[in-house]
């Protein structure tokens, strides 16, 4: 495009700077609190620094480490489950045209446009009937509701740009069904599985109300623990748990960042709803 005026460039630089500060800002007090001892108004920074919040958070009696493991386990399980269920559905929606397709798309995407609380209370009743309430399995299963739409969305976008003739070609060259999947289909859809899986993991990772209701307070994931400390006024421990809670997401992001660029069709798939 044409060169921009200096004013526009200055404005852009300023807007960028404001954006950077704003994006980081809410995380800063959390980090400071986790090292603070008695940080009272009107001190800008704590008078005394301490590791005691971290010592407590990482000790056995706080249950943070157990909870971290549990949360990772639940989110991984929910991700795997939504990949297993979502990839076939994405294939059907991305590759084929059929009667009633719009209705099925709407049905699968409905959880993203129906407020969570509206479904959560009903599901709780369903799970009580099925005996799944207060169990880890029940929590994993219920996390499928918010994660599956993202998975299907990403995968149907991937399959819409996928030519199944490659599979026919592989079969005609003598590859078995399984080998065809492993050597042809899987590599082609892997970027979608990574992006969809990342979304699914993060959505599951941040669930609060579904876990609270279905887990009935017995399945204590990190957000539940964090909420309890946040509402009980222990800002230092809240800060430490908050940091522990966001680290896995950041690590996963760094591991998968190259798949998230705009050029990966998976992210743009959101425009297709």
């Amino acid at each position: 495009m044409q060169n921009d005026s200096p004013w526009l460039r200055a404005f852009r630089g300023l807007a960028g700077a404001v954006l950077i500060v704003w994006l980081v800002l809410p995380l800063i007090p959390l980090a400071i609190w986790s090292f603070a001892r008695g940080w009272f108004f009107p001190d800008i920074l704590p008078k005394q620094w301490t590791l005691s919040a971290w010592e407590y958070a990482l000790s056995d009696r706080a249950g943070v480490i157990d909870s971290l493991g549990l949360t990772i386990g639940i989110s991984l399980a929910a991700t795997v489950l939504s990949i297993l269920v979502g990839v076939p559905a994405g294939r059907a929606l991305g590759l084929y045209k059929f009667r009633g397709k719009e209705l099925i798309e709407l049905l699968i995407l409905a959880p993203t446009i129906v407020p969570g609380i509206a479904v959560a209370l009903g599901i709780h009743s369903v799970f009580i009937t099925l005996g799944l309430n207060n169990t880890v399995g029940g929590v994993v299963l219920v996390h499928l509701v918010p994660t599956l739409p993202y998975m299907v969305l990403v995968m149907s976008g991937i399959f819409a740009n996928y030519d199944p003739a490659f599979e026919s070609q592989a079969r005609s060259l003598g590859a078995s069904w399984l080998k065809t999947f492993w050597y042809v289909t899987f590599p082609a859809i892997l970027p979608g599985i990574i992006v969809g899986g990342l979304f699914a993991f993060l959505v599951s990772w941040s669930q609060y109300i579904l876990t609270l209701l279905i887990g009935g307070g017995r399945v204590v994931t990190l957000p539940l623990l964090l909420f309890n400390f946040a509402t009980s006024g222990r800002n230092d421990i809240t800060g430490a748990i908050g940091i522990v809670y966001i680290l896995p997401g950041i690590i996963i992001l760094i591991l998968t960042a190259r798949h998230l660029s705009g050029r990966n069709g998976a992210v743009g798939g959101f425009g297709r709803i």
């Binding site: 297993l84 076939p88 559905a89 699968i108 479904v119």
Partner: peptide, 24 residues
Amino acid sequence: KIFLLLAPALTAIIVLFMGGLGIG
């Protein structure tokens, strides 16, 4: 084929999501 591909996802959505709404 389409039915089999969609079956798991639809089951999950209908039982969990629609079930939740329905019981509610």
